[in-house]
């Protein structure tokens, strides 16, 4: 069964499995290799799926720590917001 895992970057399950077999086993490595989780939703949809793929291919338990931890900013934001540190508090 092959299907899309990362909807944003159009990454297939087979792409991720291949990356793991090629030795890219951590979330970070898979993300950089396949771009899974690097799209506009920032991994919000596929993060849980990547956990399961890694656990399954490496035959270990589903990791009990958060895999790709949500990075700040947790939403796509305009560069202007970052530049001004989100604006001054009133």
């Amino acid at each position: 069964m092959d299907c899309v895992i990362c909807r944003c970057e159009e990454v297939l399950l087979s792409d991720i499995v291949r990356a793991i077999e090629d030795g890219y086993t951590s979330h970070r490595e898979i993300k950089l290799k396949t771009r899974a989780g690097m799209g506009i939703c920032q991994g919000r949809t596929c993060r849980l799926l990547l956990d399961q793929v890694i656990a399954s291919v490496s035959q270990g338990p589903v990791p009990k720590t958060i895999g790709i931890a949500p990075n700040v900013p947790i939403r796509p934001i305009m560069l202007g917001d970052l530049a001004k540190g989100g604006g001054k508090a009133k």
């Binding site: 299907c3 899309v4 895992i5 849980l48 900013p73 939403r75 989100g86 604006g87 508090a89 009133k90």
Partner: peptide, 29 residues
């Protein structure tokens, strides 16, 4: 911090963001 808006400062914060759905990928989904 909010996109496109001024910050809000508060002494206390309550995070009540709820839950999201666990995706179940199916070919063609």
């Amino acid at each position: 911090k909010m996109s496109g808006h001024e910050d809000i400062t508060a002494s206390y914060v309550i995070v009540a963001t709820g839950a999201q759905e666990n995706p179940t990928p199916v070919p063609g989904w």
